[in-house]
């Protein structure tokens, strides 16, 4: 119970500070918007072309956004050494990581949902009829990115060359999630949309395995 209540209190803090400053959301939304708009000029976004490239492009933009978003996740806690205050206050340090990854997932999903209509209009791809299934893939993919990204953000925040370290570690680790997410999304953007359950299952397993690893070893990530 203390894990859940601590996580709830910390998630509330994360959301409150972000929606008060809007630093991360503004930066990432503008960044993804630029990527999506720029790519729409590089090829003729007919429906057929968009179906071939759209899914990959979308997840590439989300990946860049995530690496922007994840970087300050633990760096913010170093400004006033608030991470130490959190470690002194919570009974289970996993609640700190759980709140961070929940907040990152929410921020990523908000960004993705804001960008989805822009993508659908600029690339001439209908997404309304598969919105529910697309939401499932976005959620599982974003959760996977957030779990791995939060863990690596905690590691890199204490390292030298931290700005370089996170993307270097993040990209190889996230390759399986990105491949699976892209494949499932491509299936949903097809002329005859279909949900690749195998890909969905893979994403769910990835999330469960990494979440379990974070639960088991997360405490060590927060130590000085």
């Amino acid at each position: 119970m203390s894990l859940l209540s601590n996580t709830g209190a910390l998630l509330g803090k994360e959301l409150r500070t972000e929606f008060r400053s809007r630093e991360l959301l503004m930066t990432t939304v503008i960044f993804i918007l630029m990527v999506i708009v720029l790519f729409s000029f590089t090829f003729d976004p007919t429906s057929a072309e968009s179906r071939r490239f759209g899914a990959g492009l979308l997840w590439l933009a989300f990946l860049f956004a995530a690496s922007l978003m994840l970087q300050p996740c633990f760096l913010r806690e170093q400004t006033n050494d608030t991470l130490s205050a959190l470690r002194l206050s919570v009974s289970d340090p996993f609640s700190i990581l759980l709140a961070k990854l929940a907040a990152n997932t929410v921020f990523l999903l908000v960004t993705e949902l804001l960008m989805l209509p822009v993508f659908a209009i600029l690339y001439n791809v209908p997404v309304v009829r598969v919105f529910g299934q697309l939401l499932l893939v976005l959620f599982l993919g974003s959760l996977g990115v957030s779990i791995a990204g939060t863990a690596l953000s905690a590691i890199s925040a204490q390292a030298r060359m931290r700005e370089l370290l996170l993307p270097v570690l993040l990209l190889p680790l996230l390759t399986p999630v990105l491949v699976a997410s892209t494949q499932v999304t491509a299936g949903l953007l097809d002329v005859e949309p279909f949900l690749q359950w195998k890909g969905v299952g893979f994403l769910a397993v990835f999330d469960v395995v990494f979440l379990t690893a974070l639960w088991l070893f997360g405490e060590y990530l927060l130590e000085e």
Binding site: K13, T17, R20, S21, N80, S84, A85
Partner: peptide, 12 residues
């Protein structure tokens, strides 16, 4: 614990 750093959030 009262440390060198204030250990409180500036945005709250």
């Amino acid at each position: 614990f009262v440390a060198h750093a204030t250990m409180v959030y500036d945005e709250l």
